[in-house]
Structure formats: C-alpha cells, structure tokens
Amino acid sequence: MKSSASVLRPSETRQRIVDTAARLFYTQGYNLTGINQLIDEAGVAKASLYQHFASKEELLIAYLTKTSNEWFDQLTEHVSPYDTPKAKVLASFDLLLNFSESVSFRGCNFQNIISEVPLESETVRSVIRTHKAKMRQFFTDLLAETAHAELADAVTVLFEGALIAGQTQQAIWPVQSAHALLEKLL
C-alpha cells in the first residue's frame, strides 16, 4: 500500500509543505523549525520538499506570500459591508482584535519573522516590507478622499503598534485603545 504522501499530486504536496511551514514558523518560529521536523509533520519525503523549494528561505517566502494574500483577502471581505472610510478603518481594527484573540496574542506573522532573519536576508525582508507597505496603502486609499487623508500614516502606526503591544501585553486593550482613539480622530 502506498503512503499518503506518495499519492499526493505535486500541487497538493507543495500546499501541504507550505501549510505545515506556516503553522510551525508561526507557532515556534522560523529559526526553531528544522527541515526534518517540517518533513515529518508534512508527511512528505525530503526529495519532495526540495523538489518544491530549493531552500528553507524559499519556503519562508512562500509562507509569507501566502499569509499576506490571505490577510488582504480577509481584510477586504471584512470591511466591504461598511459604507464610510471611517467605518472601514474601524472595522479593520475590529478584524485585528479578532485576529489577535484567535491566535492567543501570538502577534504578527511578519513582525515575528523580521526579528529572526539576518539583515542579509534581503529577499525575505523585501516581502515583509511589501506586505507592510500594502497595509499602509490600504489606509491611504481608504482615507484619500476624506478630510483626514493626512492621518493615513498615523492610522498605520496605530494598527502596527496595537498589534505588537497586544502581543507584548497578551491583552486586547492596545487594539481597543487604538480603536477608541480613531473614533475620536476620524
């Protein structure tokens, strides 16, 4: 009888590897996740891993790219029912609160990784900067046609700060405080 790993199609194998890496990189960290653990938990052969990813860093980039795409899909869907830019900004902070609680305040996938990779890992750092720039652009676009357009960068800083403070404090109050401040500012 064939093992389940041997009957997976290449795209399924790749997806299983990325999903396993996502879970392990997020819960235990990039540097503490070994290739052998990843192979074991994904249920794939070492050759399969290297057929899809030339290096652990390449797998990290796939994880970050997947995570970014999923975040922005979720964010767009979450704010779409709201009519005003202010309501959409506040809804994005509600989503941040839900996310923070759902991951037990483990924090931002990107902030966690940036502290683990060396400065020389420019490709990884570029993926992270791109994600964060896209978040900034999201708020810039929302507020562009309002009287508060100049606050887009401040909203971005509040969002990022609330995320990291929530992780540090293991509490919801940083996100709630940022939300309350924005209700007054916008």
Rank of each mutant, 00 (worst) to 15 (best):
V117F: 06
D141F: 08
T123I: 11
E57L: 01
G29T: 01
A45E: 10
Q37A: 11
K86Q: 08
D94V: 11
L96M: 05
V7H: 08
I164A: 06
F138S: 04
E58F: 00
L8A: 03
A54E: 02
Q170A: 07
S102H: 08
A45L: 07
L60W: 01
L163N: 08
G43K: 09
K184P: 11
G166I: 01
A165D: 12
D40F: 09
E183Q: 15
A149M: 08
F93Y: 07
A171M: 02
P85N: 04
T84R: 13
E58W: 01
Q111P: 03
L96S: 03
L75N: 05
L8E: 05
S48P: 00
F110A: 02
S126G: 07
A54G: 00
S55A: 02
A154G: 11
F159D: 08
A180L: 15
T13A: 15
E58V: 01
K2D: 12
K2E: 14
A133W: 06
A87G: 02
E57G: 00
V18L: 01
T67L: 10
S102K: 09
E183H: 14
K2S: 11
N98Y: 11
K56H: 01
N69R: 12
I17M: 01
C108Q: 02
E122V: 13
D83S: 15
A22R: 14
L151C: 06
E183S: 13
A87E: 09
Y50L: 03
K66H: 06
E57V: 02
S3R: 15
L24F: 05
L90N: 07
K184E: 15
L60S: 01
G34K: 12
A165R: 14
K88Y: 06
D141I: 13
F99M: 06
K46T: 03
F110E: 04
A91Q: 07
E122M: 15
E145K: 12
Y50T: 05
Y82P: 07
K88M: 11
L97F: 13
G166Q: 04
A42Q: 01
V44Q: 05
L182W: 11
L182P: 13
K86D: 08
S6W: 15
V127G: 05
P81K: 08
V44G: 02
E70P: 05
N31V: 03
S11Y: 13
S92C: 06
A45Y: 09
Q170R: 14
Q137L: 13
K184Q: 15
A133V: 09
L95W: 06
G34C: 09
T20V: 07
E57Q: 03
I61T: 02
L8G: 01
L119E: 14
V175M: 06
G166S: 12
A149Q: 10
E116Y: 10
